[in-house]
Design a protein around this nucleic acid. Structure first.
Lengths: 204, 204
DNA sequence: ATCTGACCTTTTTTATAATTTGGTCAAAAA
DNA sequence: TTTTTGACCAAATTATAAAAAAGGTCAGAT
């Protein structure tokens, strides 16, 4: 890794810390510069603008997610185990990066979050493809019936996301959610997963 | 119905029209008064404050929902038919009263929507109880397995609501959603319902 | 019992000034 | 050449104050 890339990494690391604590909008380029003891214009030598830095941060987070996703699948046999593993990993990342408002972006100023949309869309496609793979394996296993893996994976993920939003919006009056909310989401997602898998086992 | 109640009805009708077109916040008591050709203080003879009027409006809408819900169940046999009927009715009401932000209330000023919360919570309980009834019937029918009707009805409704939020938040960049969004929601909800019912048919 | 005009208080809007922020650039430092 | 800086700018954000509009009250008219 080149010296330039090392510094880039340092900046991204610092940005992640502030972004995930204060949010993207509440973090200034000056603060990030201070964190790594350089002046603000120095940042612009590594990243042409804030948007590019944000994108680098989000990409890094999503890559980490998929890395851990593949890792935690190790040794799992059943679709049940695999799905429950996904749920806990999603919870972990949602808790950690909630302030980035990666999924909702409601009431946040547009520009920057709009620029993340392509990455998030790509991540969604990637995650859907991953789940599709799990479903195909299960179909070939004979552990579930011959459904449309593509369609079902998309539906599954959308419902997981929808349930998160549901809890945040209806149950959360506070500024940011605590452990109870994340637990509530997980519980609902688990309940759903159980029925969903049963549904997949049934022939259409 | 007394003369007083008639006038109250007139006011509520007028309020519903404006609320569902411009939203609650953007509708003034003066405008409602003008609509029925009285001065603004006259309204306060029938409703002590705006909040009370809003509550009356929301209650009226929810009552209408449950009335139509019971009506459209007539002659239906299977759980599939019943669930699909619920979906289309929910779509109808969501389209009609979207501007009231009954379910989300994000970015809306708190006070008034907070006052609707008890009604909406009650409506949720009522709807859940209704679905519970359908599930119990289906269990007794033998058309689905012996699941926990209470728990499953709650889960079902929460996922329906979650899917609505999902589409609105992720797919809708525009200020208010059009027919495509409502159709997208319905489609996802139908797909989900199909798998869900299959899941209910499986024994745990 | 129902409604009105006049009035009050609190919010919300609007207009404007002050500040901060993202971003640039020539020149210095490494 | 590569990296960093101080000085600077324009656009966006925030702070402040004035104006308008909103919700709500009340004595008295109908």
């Amino acid at each position: 890794m080149s010296e330039l890339d090392k510094k880039r990494e340092l900046i991204v690391e610092s940005a992640i810390k502030r972004f995930s604590h204060f949010g993207i909008q509440k973090t200034t380029m000056n603060e990030i510069a201070d964190d790594i003891s350089v002046t603000q214009p120095a940042l612009y030598y590594y990243f042409p603008d804030k948007m590019t830095l944000v994108i680098a941060v989000v990409e890094r987070i999503m890559n980490q997610y998929f890395e851990e996703l593949h890792k935690c699948m190790d040794g799992l046999q059943s679709l049940e185990e695999e799905f429950y593993c996904i749920l806990t990993l999603r919870k972990k990342f949602m808790e950690r990066y909630f302030m980035l408002k990666l999924t909702d972006a409601t009431q946040e100023v547009g520009q920057i979050h709009d620029s993340c949309q392509p990455i998030m869309k790509n991540a969604h496609i990637k995650e859907a493809a991953f789940v599709t793979g799990l479903l195909e394996k299960a179909v070939n296993n004979g552990s579930i019936s011959k459904i449309d893996p593509q369609k079902m994976s998309e539906l599954y993920i959308d419902i997981l996301t929808g349930l998160s939003m549901f809890v945040f919006i209806t149950k959360n009056k506070k500024l940011f959610p605590g452990n109870e909310e994340f637990e509530a989401i997980l519980k609902k997602q688990e309940e759903f997963t159980q029925v969903f898998i049963s549904g997949l086992k049934m022939s259409k």
